[in-house]
Simulated assay, not measured.
Amino acid sequence: MPLHVSPAPAPALRSVLAALGSPTAVREARTPALRSEPGPLTAEHPLPLHVLDRVSPRGGRAAAPTTRLAGWRFLIVGEDHAVAAAEAMLTPDGWAFSHFCEGPYVASTENALRRAEALPAAYQPRLLSVPELYMLTLWLHRDTTAAVDAGNPAPTDLLVPLAPAPPGIAPNLPHRVSDLLPMLTLRITPGPLLGSPA
């Protein structure tokens, strides 16, 4: 089924397009692929970028995850594929361009979106970052009408870890939140210190 992609806030898109059209911003970016792309570049596939707040076990099981909207990420597409990404973040003065980036998450995001289009259910695509694990996932939210700045991962939502994923977590495969979250919680939660009582 087609993904229900939410439109990015117009000021966020404008800030990214202004940076993309600025030779200075592109030249100063640490993205060789962006500078070497010969054709015109466009900002496509806007995705709200959420950050998973630290989760901790409660009574031997994972607490409900909470997230916060940190920005919007756009894939920067050249002739036939994404070559970089651009992020806009919310500041006290409104949406502003943050930075360009490249690397394996760009192609992995493009691939995950293509695969998600073929899933039998409808989803609202988002990105979910897990900073403690240096992990980024495509979050397929079941509530396609939800406001993009609200909502937390539901047990039946899907998370697709983007490659490279942390060791022991299969990348590029959809995992139910109810299956993946306990694994993430165990990795995030610090264990007992050596020499301290367990």
Rank of each mutant, 00 (worst) to 15 (best):
A82F: 03
A62K: 02
G71T: 05
V130I: 15
S98E: 12
A107E: 15
V106F: 01
L75N: 09
L49K: 04
W72Y: 13
N111E: 15
T137D: 04
P57H: 13
S56P: 00
P125S: 07
R58T: 13
V55T: 12
S108Y: 05
F100M: 12
L113N: 04
Y123T: 04
E110F: 02
T66P: 02
A63G: 05
I76R: 03
R68K: 14
L52E: 04
T67I: 12
R54I: 08
G94I: 02
L136G: 00
A121K: 08
Y134S: 08
R61I: 09
E132D: 10
P48T: 14
L47A: 07
P125H: 07
P48K: 14
P65L: 13
P104T: 10
R54S: 05
M135D: 14
V83E: 12
E132R: 07
F100L: 09
R61W: 04
R126W: 02
E110S: 07
V77T: 11
R68M: 14
A82M: 08
P92H: 09
T137P: 00
T137R: 04
F100I: 12
L47N: 06
G94Q: 01
E117F: 06
G94L: 02
R61L: 10
H141L: 00
Y105A: 06
I76S: 01
R73W: 06
E117G: 05
S129M: 09
W139F: 06
P65I: 12
D53I: 08
A84V: 08
P104F: 09
